[in-house]
Design a protein around this nucleic acid. Sequence first.
DNA 1: CCGGCCATGTAATGTGTTACATGATTTA
DNA 2: TAAATCATGTAACACATTACATGGCCGG
Lengths: 187, 187
Amino acid sequence: MAAPTPTTDIAVLGALSVEPMSGYELRGAIQDVLGHFWSESFGQIYPALNRLREQGLVAARPGERASSSVYSVTAQGRARLSELLSSPIRDRPPRNGLMLRLFFGRHLGLDQCLALLDETEAANRAQLAHLRDTQTEVERENLPDAPYFLITIDLGIRTCEATLEWVDDARERLRGAEPAASTRPRR
Amino acid sequence: MAAPTPTTDIAVLGALSVEPMSGYELRGAIQDVLGHFWSESFGQIYPALNRLREQGLVAARPGERASSSVYSVTAQGRARLSELLSSPIRDRPPRNGLMLRLFFGRHLGLDQCLALLDETEAANRAQLAHLRDTQTEVERENLPDAPYFLITIDLGIRTCEATLEWVDDARERLRGAEPAASTRPRR
DNA sequence: CCGGCCATGTAATGTGTTACATGATTTA
DNA sequence: TAAATCATGTAACACATTACATGGCCGG
């Protein structure tokens, strides 16, 4: 029902411009490589592929498996991609659940705030490791897109690093602000 | 129509717990103070306030103006806030339009990529200045919430700083990768 | 031969913004 | 007195996820 929006088209045309693949693989590729700043679900991808095919922006050829298709970008599709990339950026307003909870953390309690910081640390360490792996892989492959891929990865890495430094600092600050709260027994 | 979700309730109850205010002021407060990580529209706020009032979580008293109400959190509301703050975080998957465009920046062209970096720099400088102002203000007011407010502001500042450093680096990298493209006259 | 992955697709549902409608109050 | 701001609220729309449904293929 929901006609996918132009932004989904950018992700789909862009990913297919790097390498032709099936809708299923497309989802995986977007998750793996663009996962730290983008996401697409099957509910968006399949309708988008069909629509883009009807518009002549992608071409489908039978895949190895009977039920699968391999999609590739047509010349028109490349033109459309350039056009879409120039279109104004309209991001949804931010909604960061972690920050919201920490902001009102006084009502949550010190222990739970520290637990949130622990989770954040773990998530960012994992993310950082994944980004470094991807970085190494991209550097090895020597694609024409490499400089562009690498700067986006670099921002991800810097953001993770800044967040990890912040976690350490935030922990100390919260412990300092309410020294006895976490160890005080309930009377 | 759309029943506001629990996350809106956190923002509304949390903001009102700091200081009672009208729905209109609530929007402004969320924009000013939580704006770098959260957002609520009137279409969410007003239905939420009415629902929370029916549930006895907030109380409304007439404001200075005839058509306005000042909402404050009740004891039940405070309990509910603590509960909501402990609920699992379910963020929407990320969708960063800038990163998406830079990732496929080869199809956009060097000049437009550099323009995107310029916009990013300007936006982050402005954001950083605003965060520093807010930081100073919070430190001056000496609220019990201050430590929690300050750590969220600090993450914002660190993220801006990291992004600004990244912009410089990204510019150099892109210029180095396609040295002649930006100055080459069209034949 | 069965569990898990590959593969496609649709319908229902949730979530949230934008646009619209209305009117009081303040300020220039 | 006109424009801007304060103030509340609803309806329509846009966007995306989740759940569901279906079936082929492969390895153990």
